[in-house]
Design a protein around this nucleic acid. Structure first.
Lengths: 203, 203, 203, 203
DNA sequence: AATGAATGAGTTTTCATTCAT
DNA sequence: GATGAATGAAAACTCATTCAT
């Protein structure tokens, strides 16, 4: 009984989060008012307030879901491979594929990350905290593994990881790029390029 | 007389644009109300409305100035060098240096690009139009030149350019990265890395 | 069976009224939402709506209980005495003692009287109806008795009663007074003072 | 020029405060929304927000005006008399006359005092602070003067002052009393009564 | 009898914009 | 050119009340 009620409430929360993602994708963070989200969820704004303390909590939960979904998707695919070269390829391909496969989630994520702020009013993207980003960790670990196994050459792991991530994110941020290069080609090219960037110098 | 008035008006517009940049950097796009901008400019909101048709135009002009300043800075420095390798190095170094040297402009640019929208309500970052981005063109031209002169190997120019730009932008977007790697080191590492990525395969 | 149900219902109503008093004392009428009252009663707001037609009825019943409790307390003590002087003393002492002994009830009463309104939207304190106030009647009767028995002098009974009541109420309304004079001293002084005020002029 | 603008703004503020008093009198604190006040002032709610930081400031300013007006009225009349007996009479008569002459102000004052709260959420009437109430001070001083000049007998000055004030306030709070005794009679009776209460015992 | 879920009406406040001066 | 004054629209949020279960 109690579980059933919690189940209903949880379903509602999920529905609202989904409507939030849809809204963010369609009209952007700035216009994503409670009314707009409620309209897309087919409910009243008061019901959102009933399930979420305030708009901040709603956006926070939505962000958490988006990040968690993406992390799961990418990490599952890198775990399924062995060896630094294959893992790097899997990481790049999965990241691009995720973006390409769920454009709504992708845009919603961008809208939140670049608009939402912490309680101290610091934008998320400026944040310089200790909190660990699982994807960043995984990527750095792959690179470090490659160096230890002498498959990769010498380079700063953090910088290389950032460059790879930046190249991936560029596909998310750059409408023109997305419009003229299909995701499969883009990830294939990226893999080749970074294979050259990480390889040991042949003396 | 007429010129003088235009001159005064132009100075006022510039002052307002500068206040807008300051405001965007300090409190972000969402809180950047006309009142906040006016406060920083030391004028009334009505005067902003007098000089700019609406907030959209103000943000548009601000964006144009930010982009133009950055373009000028980077293009001046790549023009001063010769040969694909040196030009690529100059491009990367100038891009990072610009970001590092003007954090306010940098953050203001990000805030606008990821929040403002065209009249058709399309976010700038999703935009897939024909308008040419001078930096992108320059970077692609450098890469193409390198390939023609057989200094660079085979790769998709657009993808390589996007990866380079993405790696550069990552430094702007990633607070943690900025906090732990100084700009000089980052650009140096990036130059080395992309030198490997673009080089011809030595068979 | 029916009685039992009524009994349970009555207990529930009483519990809700008590929670209302607690809420009024703690956070005041304005913040005394159904949710706040329900929280203090440990039940849902819907249950309050089930037992009371609307918030008005709840406040009305609460007011009735508060007034009735106070009336009972004071009237019991005046009934236990004989003669106008002793009765007047008993009335004053009991009134102050009641206030001092139940600050919660006292504040709840004030909050309702000065905030709630009749269905015709008339504040209770402005009300000029025929409804008899038992305390006022008792006080007037004491004064009248004193005059008839030649123990008290000539004065307008209604005005004297109002003055006595006003002096008593002042102790309820005036935080500073309450903070600097203890209830026992206050009622003792009041008794002396009004003994002089009501006495016959010694010609 | 600057003065003129300030003058206009000040007139507006006064107009809004007057509309607030009218609103409080007519529909009470709880229903006195910004919209209701704006309606009575013939302006938009936004204009109220333009002239007052928030509703709290509006109510605070309104309370200050109400208290200040009343204090001025009463103190002017007591100052115009000499000697404790005459001053006491003037105090009582002026207090009642003020209430009777401006019922709207009187009710508005009651509505605010019993509804508004400090930033720490303490109701004004519960407040036990050091802030001096000019009327209370004046009344106590009159009583003290009477005792020093041997015109008044022995009694606790604070209690006597509270009783007098309570008797006066009763006329403000008690609709039934107001409906059946005219203010002139009430103050006359009060003066006689308290003359007996303060007089020296004739041994 | 009791409650979680849901809503419409209403709250204060902010904002871009307009206009008389 | 410049501004104080003013507003309509929209924002997030609260609340008393209803209803299916």
């Amino acid at each position: 009984m109690d579980e059933k009620q919690t189940f209903i409430a949880e379903a509602r929360r999920l529905q609202i989060v989904d409507a939030t993602i849809k809204t963010l994708d369609e009209i952007g963070y700035i216009h994503a008012s409670m009314a707009q989200i409620a309209k897309r969820a087919g409910i009243s704004t008061a019901l959102i307030s009933y399930h979420f303390r305030d708009k901040n909590e709603l956006m926070d939960d939505t962000l958490k879901k988006l990040v968690s979904d993406m992390n799961t998707y990418v990490l599952e695919r890198t775990s399924a491979t062995i060896g630094p070269h294959d893992k790097l390829r899997a990481y790049i391909e999965a990241s691009i594929a995720y973006q390409a496969g769920r454009p709504s989630s992708n845009y919603a994520l961008i809208e939140i990350v670049f608009h939402a702020r912490t309680v101290d009013d610091v934008p998320y993207y400026k944040l310089d905290d200790d909190e660990e980003d699982p994807l960043e960790s995984e990527l750095q670990q792959i690179l470090r593994m490659g160096q230890e196994q002498k498959e990769f050459g010498e380079f700063d792991v953090q910088v290389m990881a950032s460059a790879i991530q930046g190249a991936i994110d560029e596909y998310a941020f750059n409408g023109k790029l997305k419009g003229s290069v299909d995701p499969h080609s883009y990830s294939k090219e990226l893999v080749n390029m970074f294979n050259r960037a990480v390889r040991r110098d042949i003396s």
